[in-house]
Simulated assay, not measured.
Amino acid sequence: MSDGTLADALGAADWWYVELDLAGVTDKPAFMDRCARALGLPDYFGRNWDALADCLGDLSWAPAARGRLVVVTGWQEFALAVPHDWGIAQEVFAEAGDRWRGTETPLRVMLALGGSS
């Protein structure tokens, strides 16, 4: 843990850490592109809500880890621009967290209250 960052601490604990920075995202296609890039989603990811839910429900494509943490930053602009889509995104993230809760490799999705880094 060289500089004491969250990423360093999680890496030392063998957790997979991803920052999903949504700064500048104002529509669903940009949201899906950002998810694909940040999370390293597989090529078969269909860039729709069901596909995102499927990928987060079956993490066989993700690196092996003791746990997984996705921190969503810069989400406020997206939430204001397309509140309906933001609501669906929150549901998908919550369902994925519920799916992996209590397993040996939990998935947690957290919203950062500050801006993007």
Rank of each mutant, 00 (worst) to 15 (best):
M32A: 11
D43Q: 09
P42K: 06
V25L: 03
K28P: 08
P42S: 06
L22F: 02
K28R: 15
F31K: 06
F31V: 04
D27W: 00
D21E: 12
W49L: 12
R47T: 07
P42L: 06
Y44F: 10
C35A: 14
C35L: 07
P29A: 06
A38Q: 08
D33N: 14
F45C: 04
L39P: 05
K28C: 08
F45V: 03
N48R: 14
D21P: 05
P42I: 06
P42R: 04
D33Q: 15
D27P: 00
A38Y: 03
N48T: 12
D43F: 08
G40Y: 00
A51W: 06
V25D: 00
D27I: 02
D21W: 03
F31E: 11
V25G: 03
F31L: 15
D27S: 10
R47Y: 11
A51V: 08
G40P: 00
A23D: 15
C35I: 08
R37S: 11
W49A: 13
A30Y: 03
W49M: 10
F31A: 12
A30P: 00
L39E: 02
A30F: 00
A38C: 13
A23S: 15
N48S: 10
L52V: 13
R34F: 03
L39Y: 01
G40I: 01
F31Q: 07
F45P: 04
D27L: 01
C35R: 04
L22H: 02
D50G: 12
T26K: 14
P42Q: 06
G40T: 02
A36H: 12
V25Y: 01
D21V: 02
L22R: 03
D21L: 06
Y44W: 14
R37L: 09
P29K: 07
D50E: 15
N48D: 15
D43N: 09
L22Q: 03
G40F: 01
W49Q: 10
A36P: 01
Y44N: 12
L22P: 04
R47Q: 12
A51L: 07
T26Q: 14
